[in-house]
């Protein structure tokens, strides 16, 4: 069991390192994606800078908290894109019967598919996160280990959501647009403070759409210094990853090959 986990980890690390290098070969395109994504994020964040010139706070959250929240979402999504952009292609691969390549190899097919693509724009998201965390004041040396854990969990939530939404293709067929939309909902709700929503709606953001775990809960932990919540966050992260794996393999039983090996 230990060897299997270690083997899967080493395989995924090697696969990702290769796929990260691939887009870097087209240097101009790679740099443009990174720089323009950074610009894109910073221009968009101007909305909040303008907003806080007129308003002091949103239910106890000031500009610093919003900056940290946006930073955590950008870092988590960027990490998911750099290390696991293949998760967003699962639905198309299922519909076109293109999972065969991974199924005939002696490696974990889900890990193989997830790590099969790296999106360069994710680096731009990560740089944005670093800038915003520094500006927010939450990016202190003491907070760094916790922030790294939050980003790891956030990226896992994004990947789990992408895997679950895309795996619906095993039962429903063409769901790639729907899967993209679900991921967009999670991003949308991760970049707004959830203390503006009524309690009933918050339940959705901590269950069906795990947006609450990506940025709101981590910022509340840092703000209130209630570190016990970290255990809850990690447990939820493990649960979502396990659920994603369960749904993917359950669906795989219904998979029909497209005879596209190689």
């Amino acid at each position: 069991m230990q060897n299997t986990i270690k083997g899967s980890f080493l395989f995924f690390a090697k696969l990702v390192s290769l796929n990260i290098q691939a887009p870097m070969a087209l240097r101009t395109s790679f740099l443009m994606q990174v720089i323009f994504m950074l610009l894109n994020n910073l221009v968009y964040f101007t909305v909040w800078w303008i907003f806080f010139t007129r308003f002091k706070e949103i239910n106890g959250w000031g500009l610093a908290e919003i900056e940290a929240m946006y930073a955590l979402t950008a870092a988590s999504f960027g990490t998911a894109l750099v290390f696991g952009a293949g998760a967003r292609q699962i639905a198309l691969k299922i519909v076109h019967g293109e999972l065969d390549t991974y199924l005939v190899q002696p490696k974990n097919p889900l890990l193989h598919q997830v790590g099969s693509l790296s999106q360069p724009s994710g680096w731009g998201d990560m740089i944005t996160a670093t800038v915003l965390l520094y500006m927010s004041g939450y990016g202190t040396l003491v907070n760094i280990p916790m922030l790294l854990l939050f980003v790891f969990c956030g990226a896992s939530f994004f990947l789990a959501t992408a895997i679950i939404a895309n795996s619906l293709a095993f039962w429903l067929g063409h769901v790639d647009q729907l899967a993209r939309q679900i991921l967009e909902f999670v991003i949308t709700f991760s970049v707004y403070p959830q203390n503006i929503f009524p309690a009933g709606f918050k339940v959705i953001l901590f269950t069906i759409l795990p947006a609450g775990f990506i940025s709101y809960l981590p910022i509340e932990i840092l703000k209130s210094k209630n570190y016990l919540w970290i255990f809850g966050l990690v447990a939820a992260c493990a649960f979502y990853l396990a659920l994603a794996q369960f749904i993917f393999y359950r669906g795989l039983r219904r998979y029909e090959s497209g005879n596209k090996i190689g």
């Binding site: 395109s29 994606q33 720089i35 323009f36 994504m37 610009l39 894109n40 221009v43 909305v47």
Partner: peptide
């Protein structure tokens, strides 16, 4: 080759 990066910035400038 890929006009997406320019589109992102165009779109966000439109937003702001």
């Amino acid at each position: 080759q890929d006009s997406n990066p320019i589109y992102w910035v165009w779109q966000k400038l439109m937003f702001i």
